[in-house]
């Protein structure tokens, strides 16, 4: 990567490698079809532990965006190009934060979203917030780049609350983790 000055939300190197590989093959894809109250695989996910430390620097500024593209409660919000579920910003959390009473899933999904003002493509990691039934608000879906279940990391039918104490899906957040490779 040549974007050394970018300070992304931190993920470990293996997870980053895997997720970026996925992202390269699709510019926009759906994440997950959500159904309230579904439980997920409870096994831990040793390969993709994720720690998250928000960094303010170099994250595109939403304030520069006019209209829905800058509204985290709209499905047209620029970070949600790859989402398929309930954005946490409609559920008591934020575009990059889980609501109270939920648990952040340690495994994420990547989309590549174009910022409407600076025109750059950014890698966006989507994470589920689990522990209470579906928020049911602002449902956003896209199947662009979606592939069948036998290609799991490109599939948005799978419920991805793996490795969490509670396995019930509530909502999805979107973290900007890097500038997309050209």
């Amino acid at each position: 990567m040549s974007h050394s000055n970018f300070k992304p939300v931190t993920i470990d190197s293996l997870a980053e490698k895997v997720l970026r590989h996925v992202a390269r093959s699709s510019s926009r894809r759906g994440l997950l079809k959500r159904v309230g109250g579904l439980l997920l695989g409870a096994a831990s996910i040793p390969l993709l532990p994720v720690s998250r430390t928000m960094a303010a620097a170099d994250i595109p500024d939403d304030a520069l965006i006019s209209g829905d593209g800058g509204d985290p409660e709209s499905c047209n919000y620029w970070r949600y190009c790859g989402i398929d579920g309930n954005p946490c910003s409609c559920c008591g959390g934020g575009a990059n934060s889980c609501p109270p009473g939920t648990e952040l899933s340690p495994i994420g999904w990547i989309g590549t979203c174009k910022h409407p003002v600076d025109g750059r493509d950014y890698l966006v990691a989507y994470y589920d917030c689990c522990g209470t039934t579906s928020c049911g608000r602002c449902f956003c879906t896209s199947n662009e780049g979606d592939r069948p279940v036998y290609v799991p990391f490109k599939n948005n039918d799978i419920v991805w609350c793996f490795g969490t104490e509670s396995n019930t899906y509530h909502c999805t957040l979107a973290s900007v983790i890097d500038v997309a490779p050209q």
């Binding site: 079809k33 579904l38 439980l39 695989g41 279940v149 039918d157 799978i158 419920v159």
Partner: peptide
Amino acid sequence: PAKSYEGMSI
């Protein structure tokens, strides 16, 4: 094993 697939109905 508590690993059954969950997702959209199939």
